[in-house]
Each structure stands twice: as structure tokens, then as C-alpha cells.
Design a protein around this nucleic acid. Structure first.
Length: 488
RNA sequence: CGGGGUGUAGCGCAGCCCGGUUAGCGCACCUGCUUUGGGAGCAGGGGGUCGAAGGUUCGAAUCCUUUCACCCCGACCA
């Protein structure tokens, strides 16, 4: 691993790419826009995934898997849906290659498909085609299915984790007997997303409703969590859609109600993606690299032995063995770095990789029955007696977890402004930050602001208050209080 | 999809204008010895169809043509 990264203050996006690569989170794939998630990055995703998977199972959801390929015709059924995704679909048109004497390996024109197949950009359509078969009666509802899958959206501009042609996500697709139940589900999931971000990723979020322009193609309404990154830009970190009866109507999914009527099923869908890995990096990282929240960090503690010779090594191994055992018993994820790099190198490397706690153990410590523990979040050096270590480490990890959250929250709050004057609005958007202000509810106003400032309405927050509020742009009485920001 | 840029060892680059030894440097890698509490030192070593194809020339990394790929900046998006 080579030295250092571009400082955040100099060029945030260069910093981001440097960190992703140098921390061995991901690498570029051979096809434009593709990414390889390396083991260290995948371990982080795995931990996020595990936490959320547990949450949805506790709330009655089950996992399943639907196919990657979708008949093109399915997409024609929901008008807004196709509108939203048509421009970024990968299409399979042929099924074979062959060797051509002139041109080498070519697509065999003979193998052209009758009906072209698209690679899923999202799975509503396949899933609802199946739900039609599975749902007849109110007794079949609610149907609460989730899938962990990859999806493909052909993107022009890509950035590792944040926007790649193929990405991993979870997509929940639920079917309900009533509109109320669907709405409740939509908000339940949004709340789980909030908890995941705040309690596990240590990222504070605003929750709220998307405007008509920003909502999901084919949804009645879209709710979201919005987070602030280290460059004061917004990142949409998760969305939960109330799909109403749109997909049920498109796919003819009806059910018999308790009183023997026929009605269309009410639907929701919701997703979070590997983008969250990018969110963790950009919300917490510093000029030394990543700073990972302990609850999702692949390694929570890394041990760096300081040994001059084999005798020291043996001494250290004996010294740490019971400590490691004790910590593992407490389910602490601990890693020993016995590679023959120098200690200084290891310090830098594990700081780059964001391990919350580093434990240095050398002969001088062993003499004093102690170890040196260094916090990644604050850099603080703590000398711990070996007798206190096993009880203290979990506390320290908790402190780091909440410390990262508090720091991110303070940063967000310092950079979120209530504003009533458009000039002030523009100057804040220009230098970065969120603006809470009034909006007259007109999509043309929203478009004009976007055109002039590049800022978009991230959401209409649940705690909006429009008393005496006027639209930042038109001056009309506000229909909503909204949060504007430049977004990823 | 528009504008710009870059392709030379795994990575980062020099060489290219002005063609001419065996294509070079830093990092990384391998071996050995000495080291190890903030990115170790010395010695030795391996690794290249100079993005690809064609052309000009006695001779091309270098000049010309074509092409491909990727990166950056904008419009779209989880």
C-alpha cells in the first residue's frame, strides 16, 4: 500500500477514490462502470447486510430470489416505471457467440431472441408477475418478501460504491389487503432504515417524503432517509415506496376480500444498496483514511505486536493469548497483524482501513502488564492493564460508536440552515450544506431552483412546520417545509 | 450523450516536440543480512509484444492515419 491520500480539503472526490482503493475496499472492474468489491469492503457490506437482514426477519419478512432476466414486455405494463428505467436498461438480444474467420469472436446473428430480455434494473415487474400466481385471497396477504440481489443500471458516470453499473442491494416487495396496511409497512421499513443508519452506521439522517419529481417511477409516494457527507452534500441512503395499486393493476393482481369482493392488492417496495458503504466512508472518513463504526467494522480491534526478535514474539504471543480469547468470548472481532511490516507501517495501514481500536503490545508493555490502546476516532492513547482490558474494550467500542454518531450529527446540524432569503439560500448551497425552507409545492419552482443552483429537494421532512413560512423562490405561502441540498 | 485528458513493468511517471546504443526512474515484488514503539537500511535480483492495427522510414515509444480503453468535468440516477 502506498503512502497517504489526497487531503479532503483539497479535493474531496479524489480523497474518496484514494481511500476506497488504498483501504482495499474495492477496485475497478474490467468493464466500464463495474466494480470489484474486495474482501475488506465486502466484509463491511456483509455486516450491514446482516444487521438489516435480522431487522426485517424480526418484523416478519422472508427472503427469496427472483430471476435476473425479465421479459421486455413486462416493462411496458407500468407507464411511469418504464419511463423511469428505459434509459438505463441492459438488453440481452442474442444467446450465442461464434468464431468468424475474419472478425474473430462475434455475436451469432442466428441466435437473435424472439423476445428480448432485459437485465433487471429493479424487480417489481418480475415479482408482480409471480404475485399474480400466488395471491388469490386475503388469506394470502400480507406477503412480505425481500431479496438480496444484484441489479444493473447502465450509468454514464460512475463512482465506486456510489454509482456503478451493477450494484448489490436488498429489495423488499410486499403485498397488502389495504391501503392503510401498505402505508404502515412503508413507514415501518423507513424506520428500520433510520435505525440501521443511525445505530449501526452511526450516520444521522433526515427522514421524509420525496416530491413528485423525485419519487420512484411507478410509486404513489416515496419516503427516504437523507444523510450528509463530509463535503456537505446529501446522499440518499435508502428509499421506501408506497406503490398503491399501480403494479397490481399493471399485472392484474387481485384478491378476494373477507366479504367476498374482488380488489387490487396494495404494494410497497424498498431498498438499500452497497451505496451505504460509500456513505460510511464519506460520513466518517478523515485524511488518514476510513473511520469505521465498531458495530459494522470487519475488525474491531487490531493487535500490532512490537517485537525485536523471536524471543519477543514468543513473549507477546503468550501474553496476548488469554486476552484475545477473552475478547473473542465477548464476540469482539479481533485481528492480529503478524506480518513482517514495520510497526509504523502497520499503524498507518490500519488507520487507513479504519479499525476502531489498535492495540500495541511490546516488551515494554509486558513488563508493566499493560497494553497501549489507540482510538481511531480521536487518536487518544490509552494504557490498559491486562486485568482491565477485557472489560474495558467493549466500553471503548461503544464510546467510539456513539462518538462517531455525535460527531457526524454535530457536523450535519452545523451545516443545516433555516433560511428565508433566496440570496442567502444560494450562498449556502454554493459553499455546501442543507437548507430548510419553504416551498410553494409547484414542480416548476423546484425545477427553477435546481436549474439555478443545482440543489434539489431532498425531502419534505416529517417534522415540517409551515407556520408563517414562504416559498424561498416565489415568495408565495409555503405548502411544505423542505430540505434542499446538492446531492450525489 | 457533449467537452477535456491519459494510455510506456503491478502502481505512479520520465523519454515523444527534434526518430538513432541494450527503453529509464520511484514505489511495489523476490533473495540475503541488519532492523522493528509512527510508512526501516544496505546489497543483489526478476519483471516491458511502449493500448491495438495499419502506414512513412535504412531505422518508430517517438512522425502520420485509424481504432479501442479508461479517467476527469457537465446533463440522468440508489
Amino acid at each position: 500500500m502506498s503512502k497517504g491520500v489526497t487531503p479532503q480539503s483539497q479535493n474531496f472526490s479524489a480523497w474518496y477514490t484514494d481511500v476506497v482503493i488504498k483501504a482495499e475496499m474495492a477496485d475497478y472492474g474490467p468493464v466500464k462502470g463495474t466494480m470489484v468489491i474486495r474482501p475488506y469492503g465486502f466484509a463491511l457490506w456483509d455486516n450491514i447486510k446482516e444487521a438489516f437482514d435480522r431487522m426485517i426477519k424480526e418484523t416478519g419478512h422472508v427472503n427469496a430470489y427472483f430471476p435476473l432476466f425479465i421479459p421486455k414486455s413486462f416493462f411496458a405494463r407500468e407507464a411511469e416505471h418504464i419511463e423511469g428505467f428505459a434509459k438505463e436498461c441492459a438488453v440481452v438480444t442474442h444467446t450465442r457467440l461464434k468464431m468468424d474467420s475474419d472478425k474473430g469472436l462475434i455475436v451469432d446473428p442466428e441466435s437473435k431472441l424472439e423476445e428480448e430480455v432485459i437485465v433487471r434494473p429493479t424487480s417489481e415487474t418480475v415479482i408482480w408477475s409471480m404475485y399474480k400466481k400466488w395471491i388469490q385471497s386475503y388469506r394470502d396477504l400480507p406477503l412480505l418478501i425481500n431479496q438480496w440481489a444484484n441489479v444493473v443500471r447502465m450509468e454514464m458516470r460512475t463512482r465506486l460504491f456510489l454509482r456503478t453499473t451493477e450494484f448489490l442491494w436488498q429489495e423488499g416487495h410486499t403485498a397488502h389487503a389495504t391501503a392503510e396496511e401498505a402505508q404502515e409497512e412503508t413507514l415501518t421499513i423507513l424506520e428500520l432504515y433510520r435505525q440501521l443508519l443511525e445505530d449501526y452506521l452511526a450516520i444521522p439522517v433526515f427522514t421524509g417524503l420525496k416530491t413528485e419529481v423525485e419519487k420512484f417511477a411507478g410509486a404513489e409516494s416515496t419516503y427516504c432517509i437523507e444523510a450528509m457527507m463530509g463535503d456537505k452534500r446529501a446522499l440518499q441512503a435508502g428509499t421506501s415506496h408506497n406503490l398503491g395499486q399501480n403494479f397490481a393493476k399493471a399485472f392484474g393482481v387481485t384478491f378476494q376480500t373477507q366479504d367476498n369482493r374482488e380488489d387490487y392488492v396494495y404494494a410497497t417496495s424498498w431498498g438499500i444498496s452497497t451505496r451505504l458503504v460509500g456513505a460510511v466512508i464519506m460520513a466518517h472518513g478523515d485524511d488518514k483514511g476510513l473511520r469505521l463504526p465498531p458495530r459494522i467494522a470487519p475488525h474491531q480491534v487490531v493487535i500490532v505486536p512490537i517485537a525485536r526478535n523471536e524471543e519477543h514474539e514468543k513473549l507477546i504471543r503468550d501474553f496476548i493469548e488469554p486476552l484475545v480469547f477473552g475478547l473473542k468470548e465477548k464476540s469482539i472481532r479481533i485481528h492480529e497483524d503478524w506480518t513482517d511490516n514495520s510497526p509504523g507501517f502497520k499503524f498507518n495501514e490500519w488507520e487507513m482501513k479504519g479499525v476502531p481500536l489498535r492495540m500495541e503490545v511490546g516488551p515494554r508493555d509486558i513488563e508493566k502488564d499493560q497494553v497501549v490502546v489507540v482510538r481511531r476516532d480521536t487518536g487518544e492513547k490509552i494504557f490498559l492493564n491486562k486485568n482491565d482490558l477485557i472489560s474495558r474494550i467493549p466500553n471503548l467500542l461503544d464510546e467510539i460508536q456513539s462518538g462517531l454518531f455525535e460527531q457526524a450529527k454535530a457536523f450535519r446540524d452545523e451545516n443545516t440552515f433555516n433560511v428565508s432569503n433566496y440570496n442567502e439560500f444560494k450562498s449556502i448551497i454554493k459553499k455546501g450544506g442543507f437548507v430548510r425552507c419553504g416551498w410553494d409545492g409547484d414542480p416548476e419552482t423546484e425545477a427553477a431552483v435546481k436549474e439555478e443552483t443545482k440543489a434539489t429537494i431532498r425531502c419534505i421532512p416529517f417534522d415540517e412546520n409551515i407556520d408563517d413560512l414562504h416559498c424561498i423562490y416565489s415568495g408565495e405561502p409555503a405548502r411544505h417545509e423542505v430540505i434542499y441540498a446538492k446531492a450525489y
